[in-house]
Design a protein around this nucleic acid. Structure first.
Lengths: 238, 238
DNA sequence: GGACAATTATTTGTCGACAAATAAAATTTA
DNA sequence: TAAATTTTATTTGTCGACAAATAATTGTCC
């Protein structure tokens, strides 16, 4: 309840340079979880009141978010939560698939025992959310699972890009989670298990192939959600 | 104290929100061109004097650079120009090669006439710098050439990552350009021509293969520079 | 003389305030 | 009444200043 979270009056003196990080991470999560809807304006003074901070650290956090593409700043005008770019979803799917493959390959190649343990832990969490029909939890733990694989691969450039893509994917999936089909997720659990096995066996070619199939699966599912969406103008980037 | 700063008294009233962009771009170039050497400290007040701006916009530019990984901020302590990470150069080469291939493939697939013109223009610039033995110009125009190919491919995620990788490569190459061998560059000109031909012919497989060979060529050349470097402790990340 | 402690100095992070730029409202005018 | 123009209001970008955190310096004691 009264944790050190956002509320009007919290304990101001947390630490010296931690305010910006807190604001950044909080807003980042809210954007990814669609608590802040795409296109909605960001009011600096409102945020400064909410976090009990001056506008300066708020601004710094916003610059970081803008550098990541999560918010868009119209100079001298408003700054808004970035829209999901439905027109270029193909780019997104292409890059996502490539990162699925490359990171899984590298994991099979470079992983160490502790990595497998972490991957398995997130896979357990994923299986749990599937069993509980917790769709939002599924989306999050699936993301953690693949980020863990990327970390086992070790290439920091891939880790960074892949993380961004997966988080962007979380935004997209949240838009359509209402139409989630309860039968498919179990298949993902199985596919994850196979991917883990291929990584442990250091079978690079198999890991690559499984990742590709897995990615195609997810991409086509998202696409089916989008095309099944009946809301008028829902696929327009506004 | 009063040493020669670029332009002490320039035209202050440029435009309202353009100060940060100017500072950002200027510093970015200086970092990439190694005018600001890795590890050297960034003094905010010194910069604010140099650009005739308050510390606030300077700070904003620095946050952007930090988000890109070009500078490193030690909280409450100094902020320095990021070091070149020689220990993980393998990651860099791997990601660079992948982006070479993927962007060239996509260019063969998606390019339009105006893209070819732009690519050819940068290739001409590259050939010119090779003829003039202008090594620094070579490095820059080679980068522009491949960024143009990435833009012809059209995938914004690849464009962004590739640009960052190529700029990081500029930093590395600048460290070793003194030992440049004058015979090899001509080969790059030829390889570039072949890549353009493959793109124009929309031969995706050939474009991919040429890009791979080209990337391997460059990677092995950089590696030979590094291993041939005789400076003591030169390969240490300090 | 060297190690430790206290003091000073420098630098960073944050603040409140002001001015430019834009949006919104009010007024005028045809 | 509607378009155009002036006035007001809101919001962003920038500034100078202050306080916390750290580094540098000095002083003290063994």
């Amino acid at each position: 309840m009264t944790k050190t979270k956002e509320k009007k009056a919290d304990q101001p003196p947390l630490k010296r340079g931690s305010g910006v990080t807190h604001v950044y991470e909080t807003l980042r999560n809210e954007i990814i979880e669609l608590k802040l809807t795409p296109g909605s304006p960001i009011d600096e003074v409102q945020l400064s009141e909410r976090f009990s901070l001056s506008r300066t650290p708020i601004r710094e956090a916003l610059v970081r978010l803008a550098a990541e593409g999560l918010i868009t700043t119209l100079t001298n005008r408003a700054t808004i939560v970035s829209n999901i770019d439905f027109l270029n979803l193909g780019d997104f799917f292409d890059a996502l698939t490539l990162m699925y493959r490359v990171t899984t390959r590298l994991a099979a190649q470079n992983h160490r025992p502790e990595h497998v343990a972490e991957i398995q832990a997130f896979q357990d969490a994923f299986a749990r959310t599937v069993a509980e029909q917790d769709v939002l939890g599924m989306i999050a733990s699936n993301r953690d699972f693949h980020v863990a694989i990327a970390k086992a691969g070790g290439n920091r450039y891939y880790i960074e890009l892949f993380t961004r893509l997966l988080d962007e994917g979380r935004r997209i999936l949240r838009l359509y989670y209402s139409s989630f089909n309860d039968k498919l997720p179990q298949q993902y659990v199985t596919e994850h298990e196979h991917i883990i096995a291929a990584i442990v066996a250091r079978d690079i070619a198999l890991a690559d192939e499984l990742a590709r199939v897995h990615a195609d699966q997810i991409v086509s599912q998202i696409q089916s959600y989008i095309s099944a969406d009946t809301r008028p103008n829902a696929s327009l980037s506004l």
